[in-house]
Each structure stands twice: as C-alpha cells, then as structure tokens.
Design a protein around this nucleic acid. Structure first.
Lengths: 204, 204
DNA sequence: CTATTGACATACGGCGCGTATGTGATTTTA
DNA sequence: TAAAATCACATACGCGCCGTATGTCAATAG
C-alpha cells in the first residue's frame, strides 16, 4: 500500500525531526528506520521540505483537535478561549511540537499562515475571538491580529518554559501573565467579570 | 589586524545569512566575498554557529540602542514602554533582523535567553516594566514573563506584517492589537489613563 | 502474451562542512 | 641578533548528505 508507506515515513520523520532537528536529520537514516530508502521518500513527497510539510499538516490537525476539546469543556466562551490558549501552551511544551512546529517550521517554510494547511490553529482561535466579540465580551478588535499575537505570546511562553531550568516553577508565571495580556482584549465595562470569578483561585 | 578580519567576516555573514538564510549560506562564498577563506573563519569563530553567534551579538546591541532611543523620547514611562515595543516591531520588519534574529537564530541556537549576550533586548524590556511597576502604573507581574510574552507578541506581529500581501494595511492593526494586550498589564484602577490621553489620536 | 505504468531501490555527482596540515610573518627568548 | 615559538590565515582532504538519473519488479492494460 502506498498510503501505508506515507504513514511510516511521516512517523519516522516526526521522530527524527523532533530528536535531531530538521537540518541534522538524515533522510537516509529516517527512511531506513521506516524500512525504506530515499527513493520512496522522493517519490511520495518530492523533497525534504515536502516531507516536513506533511509532518506539519498532521501535527497541526492534532493540535486543533485538542484545542477544540479544551475549549468546549469550559463553562463560558471566555473561559473556553483561555482554556484553548493554555492548551496551546501545554502542547508547545512537548519537544516534538516545539522543535517541528515552532522552531524549524517557520525557519524552513516561512510564515505559518502560508503553510499548506493554512494553519488551522490560527483560524480556530480567530473564530473563537469572533464569537467573543459578537457576544459582547471582547472589544471589536481585528480577529486575525488578536489570534496571531496571542498565539505568538503563547508560543514564546512555551519556549521559555521549556528552556527554563525549572519548568514547573515558570509555568504558572507564564500562564498568569498570559491571562493578563488576554484581558486587555476585554471590553472595559465588563473588565473583570468572566475570568476572575472562578478562575482566579486556580492560579494563585 | 585581526579585529578588521572579524569585522569583515561578520559583515559578509550578515548579508549572506539575511539574503539566503543560515542553512543555505555557504561559508566558502561568504568568506570569499570578504576577501578571505574558511581558514580565517574557523580560526576566529570556531565554527559556523560561532559566526552566527557573533552576528547576533552585533545586531542585538544595535536593537537595544534603538529601543532605548525611542523609549527616552517619550513623555511618560508607559508611553516610553509602548514606543520601545513599537520600535521592536518596526525593526523586526527588516528582513535582516527577521531572518537572522527571529527565524534562524532560535532554530539554530535555541532559546534566545540562552544566547551569548543573554539577549539584551529582553533585559531592557524587563527593566522598563519593573520601573512601571514601581511607579504604580503596572500590576506587580513577573517582569521576565511580561517582557518575554510581549516580545513574543511583537515578534509574531512583525512576522505577520512582513509576510502580508499589503504590509502597510496590516501594520496599524497589529500595533493597535498589541497595545490592547499591553494594557492588560495596567493596574485596574489606573486602567486607561496614561495611554489614552495623547496616544489614541495617533492610532485611529 | 506483450506493453506500459507505478512504486520503489540503487547509483552517481556535487556541494558544504569540519579538521588536519602547511606557510609566511611576527614576536619571544636566549 | 639568531633561533624558536606563536600567530593568523591558506590549502588540502575526507566524509556525509541531498537531489537526480537510472534500474527493477510487480500490477494492470490492451
């Protein structure tokens, strides 16, 4: 089966890219680990970048799924939004996601919004923000801008946590600060209501 | 002079890394452009990463200098802080800074806070935030967390703007949204005072 | 039964990095 | 001041890796 070959190669690539980074991952090695050769790789994905694109597509889909789960579990739309963002930070702590999606991806393929899949993560966040604006919770900001900047802040938070000497000590600081920033999007009249009521005690 | 050799190599490397990216820049080519060979490069910088580190050090210093100038030009500390951040976004629009500092740098050398120079940009921002906390303008947040997340948001904004079809149309959206996020750090009592008075008219 | 296509494997060439070694000039040391 | 050591770089070599060109074998078509 050709589909099976693609799956095996993508899986091997995920491990190799995560462990060694895109540049240092040898295509001879990772194809051998999948029980194949570089011939199969070039036949299915064109070149090394094509393989990276395929891997990123797969991970992106998984990330969106997890974010939706976390969002839908929350009581209010605002809390769902924050949960979505925190889930993003948590995922970004995983070495595989960090290395492939957040470091090598942008460096090799350029701006994430131009990626094959169009980066579902960003679109999902923008949708959530639009719902919050319609609901009257959030100021009428540009949804794409807000989604991107918050994603960027979350990404930076994750990189910081992961590189820290004591990640567990840094994590709450990052999340707390992130929530402050997000609250800057709230309408000034309804400034502290949706979040502070039942979420504060969890933080401090 | 050995110092002159280092300067020539760093200069050639800046151009090569900015134009082709770190991975695609050939050391044979860039040293030849400086009128030297790879021998000089390995003697002075150890390896290719070492040269990148030297280039990053130089750019980082230039960025801090520009940020300080913008900050000191403002009337209040809060406006100075915002000016500093906007300056960061503007600098991040330059292809050289974007490619080297924001894309290849983290991918090749890892987390910016572990860089040789310790990343002066972040330290400078953290200092400014500390001053705002002492002044009573900003909530008593963790200064490193705030500096990092805002830098991350600014970086993302810059990458977005640079990759946009119409950068000039996107720029004001990004800056406006960034300011909203930053205002999430303000103390709730003094929420809209320092910024809205003389800065709003410039934006809309 | 032959021909063609598809899915891979194998073979080849070139490039780029790192290191080992060479060289002329400058500085140290006796 | 002559010999020796050091310095700043150039040259030479080997290795790994990528991309492409070519080969192989099975499946399907005619």
């Amino acid at each position: 089966m050709m589909e099976e070959t693609r799956v095996k190669l993508i899986q091997a690539a995920r491990r190799a890219f995560a462990a060694k980074g895109y540049a240092a991952a040898s295509m001879d090695d990772l194809t051998a680990e999948a029980g194949l050769t570089r011939g199969a790789l070039y036949h299915n994905f064109g070149d090394k970048k094509g393989l990276l694109r395929a891997v990123i597509d797969q991970i992106d889909a998984e990330m969106v799924a997890r974010m939706r789960v976390e969002r839908d579990r929350a009581d209010t739309a605002w809390l769902g939004f924050l949960a979505e963002c925190v889930a993003y930070i948590e995922m970004a702590l995983e070495p595989e996601i960090q290395r492939i999606m957040l470091l090598d991806g942008p460096a090799v393929l350029g701006d994430p919004s131009r990626w094959p899949n169009q980066n579902e993560c960003l679109r999902a966040t923008a949708q959530t923000i639009q719902a919050l604006i319609d609901e009257g919770t959030v100021k009428p900001v540009d949804t794409e801008a807000a989604a991107r900047l918050l994603n960027g802040a979350a990404l930076t938070a994750a990189l910081w946590i992961a590189a820290a000497d004591d990640p567990r000590a840094v994590f709450p600081k990052a999340v707390e600060t992130f929530k402050y920033l997000a609250e800057g999007l709230l309408r000034t009249e309804t400034r502290l209501p949706p979040s502070r009521q039942k979420e504060r005690p969890q933080i401090e």
